[in-house]
Design a protein around this nucleic acid. Structure first.
Lengths: 195, 195
DNA sequence: GCATTTCTGGCAGTTAATGCCAAGTAGGCG
DNA sequence: CGCCTACTTGGCATTAACTGCCAGAAATGC
């Protein structure tokens, strides 16, 4: 622990986060101002912006860390595993590493119901996608080769995220009563199984 | 023509649009302010915001109309056509109905190079997706039925858009030298063909 | 032409976000 | 323990995207 600084900072961050999520749930995202959050969490507006660069980061801020985890997990899957299975393994790890399901559900609903938040969330996801493409391309048997391997990798990654997104949205609308991994498998099956 | 108002409005809108795209290309999206666009297009800032609700709409504003067209086209495909083929037909129509390829290329580059624009663009597209889901669900043979038809439809639509997005990005990075429809087919093949 | 409708422009205000500087606080060192 | 340095915090000013309001101009209908 590099110091007391870091600890009190953690405390402040947590207080801000709790206040923000509570206020967002109570009054909606757009109706809640940064000033109000800062006041109730007892920090200055200026510090709040130092901890969280933007208002949106209050909701989808810790995505960065998850993206790193996802990438590392996919990289570390055995080489003979298919791109699809490796990505699915990464997805699985993220699920277990996520927030307590109670809060995850609340955050998901907030994100899917608030256009500006949804956009920012997608933006972060696009960054993950870009980082995953080289990892997936390395895993593709460069045998067939008619579709350039880059095209293949991009399409696969984009599709997986589309399915994750779809599954998450369904999961949120069903109040978390259906298993998220099951929903993901159903989505992928709908796409990949030829009837 | 309901009036002279409508015509001069169209002129103003076009002037704003041209100015905006030119400035965005010259200096980048974030570095261009609304004030500058309004000044150079010779309209007041206030009117600019009346024509285009947000800065982002200057770039991806006319998506609404395309979404309508897409939906209608997909609906009108013969009933025995598969969901995949119907969506592909809709995509084809949009391609031809789009801007002159010169400007389309410029806009695509802008969107894919500017994270916040890209996110907003996808968000608008998500609205199309939601509208297409019932259309696609109606087209699914409700035979198999283990994955709820709604899940199936959502996943298929999301995947098709993911492939459109990927194809468009590749098309823009190749300066439009590769046929967009070909790229789309390659993306879909990478996803659907089991090797 | 004149009243009415509709649009435009300017102005003030709100909110998110950033830079700057002064003041405070923790950590290391004699 | 006291002091100096490094880092952090908070307040202030500023910018940029937007919104509401109102007065005035322009177009329309009679």
């Amino acid at each position: 622990m590099t110091t007391l600084w870091e600890r009190s900072r953690q405390v402040a961050v947590q207080a801000i986060l709790d206040t923000a999520v509570r206020l967002f749930a109570e009054q909606g995202y757009e109706q809640t101002t940064i000033a109000q959050i800062a006041r109730e969490a007892e920090v200055s507006q200026r510090s709040l912006f130092r901890y969280f660069g933007t208002k949106e980061d209050l909701v989808c801020g810790d995505q960065e860390a998850l993206g790193e985890l996802l990438k590392r997990t996919v990289e570390q899957q055995p080489a003979e595993m298919s791109a699809w299975d490796a990505l699915r393994a990464g997805f699985e790890v993220i699920l277990t590493a996520n927030h307590p399901p109670e809060r995850a559900l609340e955050l998901s609903r907030l994100i899917f119901d608030t256009p500006s938040l949804h956009a920012r969330y997608i933006e972060k996801r696009l960054r993950w996608q870009a980082e995953l493409v080289p990892v997936i391309r390395a895993r593709l048997g460069n045998g067939s080769g008619r579709p350039a391997p880059d095209t293949q990798a991009k399409a696969i990654v984009a599709t997986v995220f589309a399915c994750i997104d779809t599954a998450t949205e369904l999961w949120a609308t069903h109040d978390g009563r259906i298993d998220l991994a099951d929903l993901y498998d159903q989505c992928l099956a709908a796409v990949r199984d030829h009837s």
